[in-house]
Design a protein around this nucleic acid. Structure first.
Length: 358
DNA sequence: TCCATTTGACCCCT
DNA sequence: AGGGGTCAAATGGA
């Protein structure tokens, strides 16, 4: 079966930087810093490989509703675990502890730097995340600018949803590598607005129980019948995003609810039929517990804060950051960040979520 | 030729 | 006035 061979290839690291021959964890060095570094390195590797495996699995299982949903869920959870571990390791790094608010400035700062510029008070909700990079968020983003920010070592890149024009999607984000010796490099991602680009789809959703409809609906390839395609819109310019749609919340909530139903339904079928696993162990996971897991995901298709405690990482300005996490529904949507598409003029042909498209 | 990416300039907010 | 955010022309690669 082609799907199986693809999965096998992915699992064995086919296609490039595969798993090393030994397949084992690098020998840990003597010092704590060295050990920490080794752990982070292996976690990063695991994270990357999981992302690749997930991409290959979903590509192979595309259209096979139950199997696709199951693979998406499991691999999404694995990816999430890696991300959380990396974040924990980063915050515990002996060489990269975030500055404390009352930390004394460096001795060589003869003139104290100006205080950080206050954030714009535009009532736009912002979601700040600290992530290992590149991380997968599955949306198509178009880069529209990059800027060197004062008193930082790395430029900030600005992205907006690829469907900014076609669907008036107001979602934006900017990404900036955090200063410091983080291994792997950590990036501060700030989301402004949220995606509305799925809101036109619900009525067109195919039955997820038979063909993985949530993924299809989320696919950037999805356009309502008779609607404009990305290529037909390529040359449209001028009219801006238009801000948050008044119906945004309701549409999004409807989409979330439908996604939730789709996943729970698919997982229920899988579990009832035990179709996808050769269970060596008696997995006593049941539908109810999965439903409970899924119920913790009210913010579908958006990053979820892993922790709301005030002891988490902070950015250079001392603002608290959420550690990147995924919820279960995210697993349907979040894909490689990889090469960023970034032209301003409405082109949609480059980067897309390979989980869903390839 | 098309399309993605870069980057300097401009706008607007603090 | 300074700086963050955005625009859009220029550039380069496929």
């Amino acid at each position: 079966m082609q799907a199986q061979s693809r999965l096998a290839a992915a699992a064995s690291g086919g296609g490039g930087s595969g798993i090393s021959g030994s397949g084992g964890i690098s020998r840990l060095g003597g010092g704590a810093g060295e050990e920490h570094e080794a752990v982070v390195r292996e976690l990063t590797r695991g994270h990357e490989l999981t992302a690749r495996l997930r991409a290959e699995a979903l590509r192979a299982l595309r259209g096979q509703g139950q199997a696709e949903a199951t693979a998406t869920f499991i691999l999404g959870e694995v990816s999430r675990a890696f991300t959380v571990c990396l974040s924990i390791m980063a915050s515990a790094s002996p060489s990269a502890s975030p500055p404390q608010p009352d930390e004394t400035p460096p001795a060589d700062s003869a003139v104290s730097p100006p205080p950080p510029r206050a954030a714009r008070e535009d009532n736009v909700p912002r979601k700040r995340l600290l992530t290992a990079s590149p991380y997968d968020d599955g949306y198509q983003w178009r880069k529209y600018g990059q800027k060197k920010i004062n008193n930082t070592n790395f430029p900030r890149s600005y992205y907006r949803c690829s469907y900014h024009r076609e669907r008036r999607c107001p979602a934006q984000k900017h990404v900036q590598q955090r200063d410091g010796d983080d291994v792997p490099a950590l990036h501060v991602v700030v989301y402004t607005h949220e995606h509305t680009c799925l809101q036109g789809a619900p009525a067109e959703l195919p039955d997820a129980a038979t063909n993985g409809g949530a993924a299809a609906a989320a696919s950037p390839d999805y356009f309502p019948a008779g609607g404009e395609t990305p290529s037909s819109l390529r040359r449209l310019r001028g009219v801006g995003g238009g801000g948050l749609q008044p119906q945004f919340v309701d549409h999004r909530a409807a989409m979330e609810e439908r996604e939730r139903q789709v996943l729970v339904s698919s997982l229920a079928r899988v579990l009832q039929g035990r179709q996808c696993y050769d269970d060596d162990d008696d997995d006593d996971t049941d539908v109810a517990s999965l439903g409970a897991v899924h119920a913790r995901a009210p913010a579908a298709a958006a990053p979820v804060a892993a922790s709301s405690s005030s002891s988490g990482p902070v950015d250079a300005a001392g603002e608290e950051l959420d550690v990147m996490d995924y919820d279960m529904t995210d697993a349907l949507f979040w894909g490689p960040f990889g090469t960023d598409s970034n032209s301003y003029d409405g082109n949609l042909t480059s980067t897309r979520c390979f989980d869903l498209i390839n």
